[in-house]
Amino acid sequence: MLRYIGRRLLQLIPVLLGMTFIVFLIIRAIPGDPAQVILGQQATKEAVAALRASLGLDNPWYIQYFHYLGDLITGDLGESMRTKTPVADELWPYLAATLELSLCAMILAVIIGVNAGIISAWFQNSWFDYAAMIIALIGVSMPIFWLGLMGQWIFGIQLDFLPTSGREDPRNPVNPITSLYLIDTLIQGRFDQFIVVLQHLILPALALATIPMAIIARMTRSSMLEVMRSDYVRTARSKGQKMFFVVYKHALKNAIIPVLTVIGLQTGLLLGGAILTETIFSWPGIGRYIYDAIGFRDYPVIQSGILIVAFIFIMINLVVDILYSIIDPRIKYN
């Protein structure tokens, strides 16, 4: 197992290098003079020259790339052109907000998706099966940003039931410790704030969870149907074991492996979806951070934001690969 993990980490090196190179290109590939484009046509020659120097654009590209890699290794993600603060210093609260949102969305997607898939397979061709699969079909085709807006309109405006933007009550802000507000409010024993934070989470998390939930439900159903027809399930049934026990203990164990692949893939994709969800719900996460940076042509933030998200995406995929071998010891990585 350790050898496998080591080999996978080694294989990551060229991908990570390629990834940093693409991110590095974000500024360098801007048509024309990047410094001029960033500062706009009104900028003075001196300002443009100063920016060129500070971004190191006067050096040959390979020197620039090695400098960029060197900076990354030392944890220097550049400085925001808007706030004049090092990106590494201001990143965590945004990242924490995205992690909290994505994690809650994934928990929702897995709990609802897996169970809907199991029940659909268990009661194949029942009304529940048809309804769940039609909803899943529509869910897969749902544009997340439209779903978010519909959620805001129905639950926030028409029913006036849930908050439609932000992460907390601005009149009663959370005192951040980890910047994961659900945890922070619990640590501080502020259950009133915990409820408010949870209310703020529901709509964006549901919007973000819909597509993975639908995909997980469909995958679980087809995987369960396959396993439920196998001999060992029939044997367990004929021994008189209760159906619930057979489904959740025996069948699920084998059916879950392809589902896990989908869960892993979807967790990574959630990070991409987060940028849209965060824009709609004014959620102060990394997606919103990148989106705002695009508006201000704050390229160091765009670069670092994209790099961090892509890095987390790769790591999630690695962890999922490793989890396979733990869950299913039949899988041998040679």
Partner: peptide
């Protein structure tokens, strides 16, 4: 194949955003 791996290493919408932020 490595080139494909690198492109697939990004969540697709994020890479699209990166490309559009370069091209305008």
């Amino acid at each position: 194949s490595r080139l494909f791996d690198i492109i697939l290493a990004f969540p697709s919408i994020l890479l699209a955003i990166a490309i559009v932020s370069i091209l305008g």
